[in-house]
Amino acid sequence: MVKSLVHLLYEKTSTLPKNTSYYHGVIQQIESHSISPQIYHLLKENGHLEKTPLFFQVRLKQKYDEVLFQNILIKSETDKILNGLENRAIEAIPLKGVYFAEEYFGHLAARGTSDIDILIKEETIEETVQLVKSLGFEQEEEWIPDHFHCSFSKRIPGSPVPLVVEIHWGIVKEKTSYLKMDPFWKEATSLGGHSYIKRLSNQHTFYFICLHGWRHNLDSPRYYLDIIQLIYGMNDRIDLHQLFQQARKDGTLKRMIRTLSIVYGEYPMLENMMRLPVKRQMKGRKGGLFHYWDFIDFQFLSYDTFQHSVREVYNWCFPRKKDIFTELNKKDQESSYLNSIILLYKARLGKGIKATYLLVSGAKQP
């Protein structure tokens, strides 16, 4: 239902449904995926908000206002970090978050965010960490070898969850591509009146958002909306042929083609805005046995080289202890790595047996 509504919102000549039951169903999906602000803003911008039932408007507005207050707080904390970096002459780029919402969605509250992502140069990690700690953030987890960011968090008065800041020095896992950050920094431009705080170019913003969506296997309409909004908002400023050439050089071409093929497959009207030069037929989103092929394709076959695929297979077979308990949806426990990995494989085996039974019996999958 969300998919059909997104189609209607971007195909501005379309007519919204009049059936009240439709809006009762779609509001549940909208809220479960935390995309109320995007839907509210799009409806309002298109002049369609008043054409929807009053209860639907009220629910959307309530979530929109909640995001507005949350994003005001997050922007305040983001600016403290950015101003601190500016004063220390440390180059930095805010990723996603409140600045992304303002620039590409048109309003601070038009896209929810729950954390702060800052891109820096690797040689300034220590200085940036010290600044973040001086602002009350504490290290959330041990640094991950071959990763591309580290996390810090702090309690915010009145908030049930801590605010997390992720300090990035890359945008994909190291040793899974050849991607270098130099071109991103070279084409970045100053943000506002800052000398050291930058914004990514439009081309690199799109590149980053696509890779971010891939990393989450497009498991929420939020990732689709980010990509669709960029295509509709600046399709004349994105050169997909050039972007794919860069992705080929970076070893991320399969990730880009897979991601955009899925998005274009779900929303074919995008071809009218920006033609996709290379497209794969993606069957994995159709459910059934293809659902499990989709997982294999994403987890192991999204890499441009055999060595990158092998490394990801190894990481999946022998994950870090923290990642084991994240996958199990449990808190990290005081147990040996061997016991932890046994728990993980038991859980995976159980899911595999259940999935096989559902496929063989023809039962409806969850």
Score class of each variant (00 low, 15 high):
Pro37Ser: 01
Gly284Cys: 10
Gly213Lys: 08
His48Glu: 15
Lys254Ala: 04
Ile93Asn: 02
Val313Trp: 15
Arg275Val: 13
Lys330Val: 05
Thr20Arg: 11
Gly97Trp: 00
Val161Met: 09
Ile93Gln: 07
Asp226Met: 03
Glu122Trp: 03
Ile156Gly: 08
Phe295Asp: 14
Thr15Asp: 08
Ser309Gln: 12
Ser361His: 05
Ile120Asp: 10
Ala101Gly: 04
Glu174Val: 01
Ser302Trp: 10
Lys346Phe: 12
Lys354Phe: 11
Lys173Ser: 11
Val164Gln: 10
Gln299Val: 12
Leu359Ala: 01
Lys154Ile: 01
Ser159Met: 15
Arg280Met: 13
Ile341His: 00
Gly158Thr: 06
Phe55Lys: 05
Cys150Val: 13
Glu66Lys: 14
Tyr10Pro: 02
Phe100Arg: 02
Leu95Lys: 04
Gly192Phe: 01
Leu191Tyr: 08
Phe306Lys: 12
Ala110Thr: 02
Leu270Met: 00
Val98Phe: 08
Tyr64Gly: 03
Gly284Asn: 09
Ile171Pro: 04
Thr259Leu: 01
Lys322Trp: 06
Met256Pro: 06
Gly112His: 00
Asn339Gly: 11
Ser34Cys: 13
Leu200Pro: 05
Tyr264Glu: 02
Ile167Lys: 00
Thr205Gln: 02
Phe184Gln: 01
Lys346Arg: 14
Glu50Phe: 14
Asp332Asn: 14
Lys180Asp: 09
Gln203Gly: 00
Phe325Cys: 07
Tyr10Arg: 04
Asp332Lys: 15
Asp219Gln: 11
Glu140Ser: 14
Val310Gly: 03
Ile231Leu: 12
Asp79Glu: 15
Gly106Ile: 08
Thr15Asn: 10
Leu5His: 00
Lys96Val: 06
Lys44His: 11
Lys186Gln: 15
Asn272Lys: 15
Leu108Asp: 05
Gly136Trp: 02
Gly251Met: 10
Phe206Ile: 01
Leu135Cys: 01
Ser177Asn: 05
Phe300Glu: 02
Phe318Glu: 10
Met282Trp: 13
Val165Gly: 06
Phe325His: 08
His308Gln: 11
His33Gln: 12
Glu174Tyr: 09
Glu327Gly: 00
Val172Gln: 06
Leu338Gly: 03
Gly106Met: 01
Val67Leu: 04
His147Tyr: 15
Asn87Asp: 15
Phe300Asp: 08
Glu327Asp: 11
Arg237Ser: 07
Tyr104Val: 03
Phe137Asp: 04
Lys331Phe: 09
Glu103Pro: 01
Gly25Cys: 11
Asp332Gly: 14
Leu163Val: 04
Pro160Lys: 06
Phe306Thr: 13
Asp297Ala: 09
Lys175Ser: 13
Lys12Phe: 00
Ser336Gly: 15
